[in-house]
């Protein structure tokens, strides 16, 4: 049994089709969702987090149906950690108070065990010494980590993280990678990001979403391999390149199209492969320099 099984899942908002018959399964390990804005990443994550329901299709979380009985939905939610893309923080709550509040909502009723668990997750995100600070006094990156801490409460079996790296500096990002890769051993981690480096460093598997459909689903190496022979370094921007930009060395990094004269084949990165995968949609992601 896979932790998350989505079959022909469709979700529309008015006339916009956010997800169009998506089939995906996830199990233990870290999976990265990549895609331009409006690709359906957040919608997919919200469905897995039981925040919204799918219009049609079958959703199975830990073998249970979230559209089924209340008891079944609650059973799923007990095993679920969710970091929403945007989260409000009551300004007068301390970091500890915030996580404790969520812990009560997650039914940690025994006070001693609850407080120990709150301390554990705050330590895990490196905020052990900041616990008694008010959330309003914390920096953006620290707040994001407080939000991450609540998602980790109770070692969930499904962890849904909507852009967890936003606002984090490189060191904090590296810490997050360490935390998540440790979790991936026993839990299905599903995260969305705009940062291809995060996916390259963190995820065993990558899913590229665009326009509500799955464009790619496989390992990071496989995605990079799709760009082999389609990336060059040369002195010109490239006449019909998909995207190209001038690098720090003065040469142009050309992705897609025909190789300009004097072009030297370059080692493709995950970002190159991602841009090629999106094709014309790539211009939404990175405007050519």
């Amino acid at each position: 049994m896979n932790a998350v099984e989505l079959t022909a899942v469709t979700k529309t908002y008015g006339r916009t089709r956010a997800l169009d018959a998506v089939d995906l399964t996830f199990d233990r390990g870290v999976t990265g969702l990549l895609g331009p804005n409006g690709a359906g990443k957040t919608t997919l994550l919200r469905i897995v987090a039981t925040s919204i329901g799918a219009d049609s299709g079958d959703v199975r979380l830990l073998g249970r149906d979230p559209h089924g009985s209340h008891a079944e939905l609650t059973a799923i939610r007990r095993e679920l950690g969710y970091l929403p893309q945007e989260l409000g923080y009551p300004g007068d709550m301390t970091a500890f108070g915030f996580v404790e509040y969520v812990a009560v909502l997650k039914e940690w009723n025994d006070r001693r065990r609850r407080l120990r668990e709150v301390r554990r997750v705050l330590e895990l995100v490196g905020l052990g010494t900041m616990a008694t600070k008010r959330v309003s006094r914390l920096s953006g990156g620290q707040r994001r980590r407080v939000a991450l801490a609540q998602a980790l409460l109770g070692d969930p079996r499904i962890l849904v993280l909507d852009e967890p790296t936003t606002g984090l500096d490189p060191t904090q990002r590296a810490d997050l990678r360490r935390t998540l890769s440790a979790l991936g051993g026993h839990c299905a981690v599903l995260l969305s990001t705009h940062q291809t480096e995060d996916v390259a460093a963190l995820c065993e598997r990558v899913v590229v979403l665009a326009g509500g459909t799955v464009r790619f689903d496989g390992t990071v190496t496989d995605l990079v391999a799709t760009a082999a022979g389609r990336v060059w370094l040369c002195d010109d921007p490239g006449p019909d390149a998909l995207v190209s930009w001038r690098t720090g060395t003065g040469r142009h990094h050309v992705v897609g199209g025909t190789p300009p004269p004097g072009a030297v084949a370059a080692e493709p990165t995950l970002e190159d492969a991602y841009l090629l995968m999106l094709g014309v949609d790539a211009h939404d992601v990175r405007a050519p320099a």
């Binding site: 925040s51 939610r77 929403p84 969520v102 909502l105 039914e107």
Partner: peptide, 9 residues
């Protein structure tokens, strides 16, 4: 905390 309250058991 609405988004969290909604998905909490």
């Amino acid at each position: 905390l609405e988004t969290l309250v909604v998905t909490a058991p």
